[in-house]
Amino acid sequence: MINPFAPIGRAVLAILAEIGRFSGFISRAVTACFTPPVFAGQFGRQCLQIGYFSLPVIGLTAVFIGAALALNIYVGGSRFNAEQFVPNIVVLGITRELGPVLAGLMLAGRVSAGIAAEIGTMRVTEQIDAMTTLSTDPFKFLIAPRLLAATLTLPVLVLVADIIGVMGGYAVATSTLDFNGATYLRNTFQFMEAEDVILGLIKAAVFGFIIAAVGAYQGFNSKGGALGVGRATTNAVVGSIVLILAVNYLITAFFVE
């Protein structure tokens, strides 16, 4: 007789096994970040790749979101004569939520997929095995620099996104919503608190870690040629996005409480 609970049990065991493998991978990767040798050149290259080259996509996302947010808040606010709160709510929304989350989601697509594809290709073409035979630990050479670079550069990118996002709102508010520029900026800075920005930057660092860790894990464990690399890339993007959204809620709830 077929046991109806067997498939559920198998699925639960598979999920637990995956969590165990991921935890082991993370523990080895984090240890590699803080033990010599340190490949400074690789770290610098990854900071450029993950941080600097992501600036255009982050800037464009921020400016359009800031602008759209200003318009929506104006429409919503006008329903109960609260249009003057546009700068306050734009800065709150951008710094606490939209800046880090949208930057995280954009980089899940750009960076996590890139890391999974690059490391996955190295895995299926035996380049990672070759590295091991050349007395070089792939965790130290490939994974630690990416993990550190993503964790450290994402907060910087989010800070830039915060500024550009607020300026997007400012541009729309002053050009089409008849706001006075000086008043808009004064309201923005008076209302904004350090905690809002710090919360966003903490989220960004955590999201950066997630993006690099999930991408590297999927790539490192990919198998089966091009198909396997494709699957690893898809899993990296989907996994990063789901984790970012879940962790975003947990961090927000923790700070609100």
Binding site: T125, A130, L134
Partner: peptide, 24 residues
């Protein structure tokens, strides 16, 4: 290795000297 397993992102001399630079 069967397929060479040279590192795509490095030049030929960096591939050949990989162990010397990064391990030794």
């Amino acid at each position: 290795f069967q397929g060479g397993a040279l590192f795509d992102s490095l030049s030929i001399w960096e591939n050949i000297a990989f162990r010397l630079i990064y391990a030794d």
